[in-house]
Simulated scan of single mutants.
Amino acid sequence: MTVHTALVTGIVGGIGAAIATRLAADGAKVVVSDLPGDALEEAAGRLGLPAAAADLGDSRSVRSMVQKITSDYGTPDILVNAAGGVRNQVGSPLEDVNPDDWHSIFAINVDATLYLSQSMVPAMKTAGWGRIVTISSGAGLRPSLTGIHAYTAAKHALVGLTKQLSLELGQHGITVNSIAPGFILSNPATRRQWDAYGPEGQSQLIRRIHTRRLGTPEDIAAAAAFITSEEAGWITGQILSVDGGVT
């Protein structure tokens, strides 16, 4: 059985941490990443996994991180980019959208996947095997409940990038898929959003979900475990909605 090396980013959030935990439990050598700082070190310590810090919106930082991972832990052939989110922003009218805020959200949600893929794909091509998973959102398929223009646009862009990478890389044995989670209480931003709905809004949201429950980070991790597996070699270019069914 081949032991694969996985890089999972965005592990300070609940979804990234759950994916890293699941892949490690399934036998992969997992390295985790997020922005440099105590939050990454604490999260990696809780997970018991090695960490490599980087600003994923900076191509040089990404290249340096991937080189270090390759040197210290082996060549990664699985990438799960769970870094993303709203960067502590809230919805605003169109007229108030700030260019810096717009580009900040694109940097972590779209640029990061481009830079990580550029750094990791050459080795995957050489090996003839690789798995890339992006974490998009229902906001990549329809308007976002957050009301944040940049977030919706960035997640739609990430869906497009996922499909384009799949077309280019499939012939090299590299699959590229995206998971679009439904509403999951996985970090402070989603909890603030949930609280802002109030009891009636929360009830309405639950009623729209076929399974009548919110998802968990472990639901997303289970999907990631499958589409990064050997068995999923003929699944690529897909956007897998893991949302309990949404009306």
Rank of each mutant, 00 (worst) to 15 (best):
A107C: 12
S137W: 02
T75S: 12
A150H: 06
P76M: 08
A180Q: 13
I78D: 09
P122W: 07
I132V: 09
H103T: 14
R46L: 07
T175L: 10
L165V: 09
A53F: 03
T113M: 14
Q118I: 04
I148Q: 01
L40M: 05
P93W: 12
I78G: 08
V66N: 01
G147E: 08
G147L: 11
V86T: 15
E168A: 14
S137E: 03
L116P: 01
G130V: 03
K155L: 02
H149W: 01
E95K: 13
S61F: 01
Q118T: 01
P76G: 07
V110W: 04
L49R: 01
L165C: 08
D101R: 15
D55S: 07
L79M: 11
G57T: 00
L56Q: 06
L49V: 00
R87W: 09
K68P: 00
E42S: 08
L47E: 03
S144E: 02
S119V: 07
S136R: 00
D77M: 02
N109T: 01
L47Y: 04
I105M: 13
A180I: 09
I78F: 06
A82Q: 10
H156R: 06
P143G: 10
Q118C: 04
K155V: 00
T175M: 09
G170N: 09
A107Q: 13
T134P: 01
I179A: 05
Y151N: 07
D111Y: 14
L116G: 01
Y151V: 07
T175E: 08
I179F: 10
S61W: 02
A123F: 07
L161Q: 06
E95T: 14
A43R: 14
N98S: 13
D100I: 13
M120I: 11
E95P: 02
T70N: 02
A51Q: 04
M124F: 02
A139C: 03
N177E: 04
L158F: 06
V97A: 13
V133P: 03
K163I: 11
S166K: 08
A39F: 00
V133W: 02
R63H: 05
F106A: 06
I69W: 03
L145M: 08
S119C: 12
A51G: 08
R46H: 11
P50N: 07
G85I: 04
R131A: 06
H156N: 08
G57I: 01
L40T: 03
I174E: 12
A53S: 08
G57F: 02
V110L: 15
S92N: 12
Q164G: 13
G170C: 09
G170L: 12
T113K: 03
D101L: 12
E168M: 09
G85Q: 05
A52V: 14
